[in-house]
């Protein structure tokens, strides 16, 4: 099974949900099964990554990270230092070596 490696960064307090560690390197499958199938035929996207992070890396209070199938409102996502809103949000297809940053805006100013 082919895999891709990603660099994941958490900031703005989100790191507290991930063992208080800001930077993580992970390896995930390059292709995943589309909904209703067992055959890994679809390139992995950020939506898949969100649930992978929740199930494999997150240590506490999952509701502060994901909500209704996407990031909780108020969490900013950057793909290689670009706002994910310019990259198709959850549908962005991940590539080997991508750097994904999650920043919470919800902590006091």
């Amino acid at each position: 099974m082919s895999t891709i490696s990603l660099k994941i960064e958490f900031g703005g307090g989100l790191e507290l949900l991930f063992s208080n560690q800001r930077s993580h390197r992970i390896t995930i499958p390059a292709n995943v099964p589309p909904e209703g199938s067992d055959v890994p035929s679809k390139p992995v996207d950020i939506t898949y990554l969100l649930f992978w992070l929740r199930d494999n890396l997150l240590k506490e209070r999952a509701e502060l990270f994901v909500e209704n199938g996407t990031v909780r409102p108020g969490v900013l996502v950057l793909v290689n230092d670009t706002d994910w809103e310019l990259e198709g949000e959850g549908e962005y297809q991940l590539k080997d070596g991508d750097e994904i940053v999650f920043i919470s805006t919800l902590h006091g100013g």
């Binding site: 950057l78 230092d81 920043i103 919470s104 006091g108």
Partner: peptide, 15 residues
């Protein structure tokens, strides 16, 4: 938050 991120400003964030 984006401004702080891109300018690499040093801030503290804990509830």
């Amino acid at each position: 938050v984006m401004y702080a991120y891109f300018k690499k400003l040093d801030y503290f964030s804990t509830e």
